[in-house]
Each structure stands twice: as structure tokens, then as C-alpha cells.
Design a protein around this nucleic acid. Structure first.
Lengths: 139, 139
DNA sequence: ACAGTCACTCTCCTTTTGGTGTGTATAAAT
DNA sequence: ATTTATACACACCAAAAGGAGAGTGACTGT
């Protein structure tokens, strides 16, 4: 058992692993990541990051292929979590503007790394899939 | 319309936005992110990153709360995408070892940023949720 | 008078996700 | 002789996710 190890461990990717990970924090962070690592959240985050302040239907157009239901739902969730601000203008027809908060921007920056990774490495993934299928066919 | 803008644009988070984003690549990267940004994938990635080479049930224990079905399924997907290597020892009872590939390690490193972001900012999210609910109650 | 606009909401309905429980092979341990 | 351990596969089922489409409310342009 290596429970008693005192020297700071390192993960294979070089990240430090604290010996004491508060399980409550762990659970909470997992929950947050679970929510944040959502398809529509990421895409909306991206278009808002690119375009700045936007209106409901415009976001829908830019994201593409999202239903009104999911757009509303995801925006609400993001507003609740403090990623976007929602500004309602009491005019008719209704006008609502969305934009990223500082927290939302920081999330965008954090996800930027993943996005770049995907763009840089997608060929490796494609190649791996090719090889995998070949191996399957051979076996 | 700002279709004709030639000066390189910048997103709010400082990332450069190429004017020409190959829609096929875009779609592909979205697909990859959609798969990769999966709860179990991330958690398995994490434990493998921390512990190095591991066996099936050990991964299950470390991840916690995952069914055998999902563990098998997710590991297969990760193997297919080239994130993990699967080594089968033809012994009885069966022994299968899993470990991250270089590609898997790089993905772990990319996600590290998001993980750290979540750990650093979870309080802000909590606070935002508090405020949101208060506003809802008041309205 | 009447269709159109915007940002939704609400009600179905289908698809996907994921858990559970069972089966399997075989050798070692009891 | 029976149980145990391992790494699954397979079938079944419940729950959740998510899409389609209709409705809404008030004003504005024709």
C-alpha cells in the first residue's frame, strides 16, 4: 500500500497530485465538469466568445442545429452558473442580449486548450480509428 | 455584415479566429470534443493518468460508481480513439492491463486546464447559483 | 384586418443513455 | 465438489435527453 507515501507524487502528465483530495471538493468539481463539459454549453461558449454580445436567435443560427428548447435550457443553465449575463429589453417584439461574464470568459480560455488539442490531434485519432478497425477486421 | 473583414479577428478571450474555418474540420473537431467531453472518459483518463498501468476492476474501483458495462464501453472507445493501450494476458483468470498512450497523455494534459479551472473557480459558480436563486425568489 | 417578429413555453414523441442482472470459461483455492 | 476470481458479452428495462411543432403576447408594417 502506498497510502503512507509523503513525497509529492506526480501524475504521468506531470500534474501534481495532492495526497489529500477533499472528497467533497472532488465530487463538486466532478459535478461542475460534468455540466460544463456539455456539447451545447461548449458551442454556445464558443460563439459568444467569438461574437461578444448576441441575441437569442443569432446564437441559435451561429451554433447551428440546436433546438430552441436546448438553446433556452443551456443559456439558463449558463446564466445560473454565472457564465453569461442576460439583459432583457422591455420592448416589443422582445429583445434579449447575452454576453459572457468574466467567469464565462475564463472558462472559454480553459477550454481553449482542449479545443486546440482536438484541432491539433484529430488526425492521430482518425489514424487510430483506422488501425483499430483494421485490427478488428483481421481478428 | 462583417464578412469582408480582413484584419485577423480576436475572440474576447484572446484566441485568434481564422476567417476560414473548414466546416468539415469544424464538424470533426466538434464530434471529437463531444465524445471526449464525456463524464466517464474524463474520470478514467484521470485515474489512468495518476496510476499508470491498471487492470479492469482496479480502474472501476478508483473511478467509483461506474458499472462494468460503462467501464468496458468507455475503455473500448478510448482504445479505438488511441488513448489507451489494452494488453491481454492469456491466463486464467483473465488479466487485462490498460495504460495511456502518448495521445491519451496529451489529452489529459489538455484537460488539466479545465480541471484546474473548475477547482479554482467552483466557489464563483456556487456564489452565482446562490444569487441566481435569490433573484428567482425575489422575482 | 392581418400576417410577421422575437423569445420564449409547453406538450408530445423518439432516441439515447446507462443500470442491473445473468451467463461464460477455467484454474486455483477451500 | 463447490466456490471464487477476472473480464467481459448480452438482453432487458427505466430514465433522461433532446427534437418537432404549436401556442403566446403585444406591437409594427401593409
Amino acid at each position: 500500500m502506498d497510502q503512507g507515501v509523503r513525497a509529492p507524487r506526480l501524475s504521468a502528465s506531470g500534474r501534481e497530485i495532492p495526497d489529500e483530495i477533499d472528497p467533497a471538493l472532488e465530487e463538486l468539481v466532478r459535478g461542475i465538469i460534468g455540466q460544463v463539459a456539455d456539447k451545447w454549453t461548449m458551442l454556445i461558449l464558443e460563439v459568444l466568445d467569438e461574437h461578444g454580445v448576441m441575441r437569442f436567435t443569432e446564437i441559435g443560427r451561429q451554433v447551428g442545429g440546436i433546438s430552441q428548447k436546448m438553446l433556452t435550457q443551456t443559456l439558463r443553465q449558463m446564466e445560473r452558473d454565472g457564465f453569461v449575463t442576460r439583459t432583457v429589453y422591455p420592448v416589443i417584439p422582445p429583445k434579449v442580449e447575452y454576453s459572457l461574464t468574466e467567469l464565462g470568459l475564463s472558462l472559454g480560455a480553459a477550454f481553449c486548450g482542449v479545443w486546440e488539442w482536438a484541432a491539433a490531434r484529430h488526425q492521430d485519432i482518425e489514424a487510430a480509428r483506422q488501425k483499430f478497425e483494421e485490427r478488428q477486421a483481421g481478428a
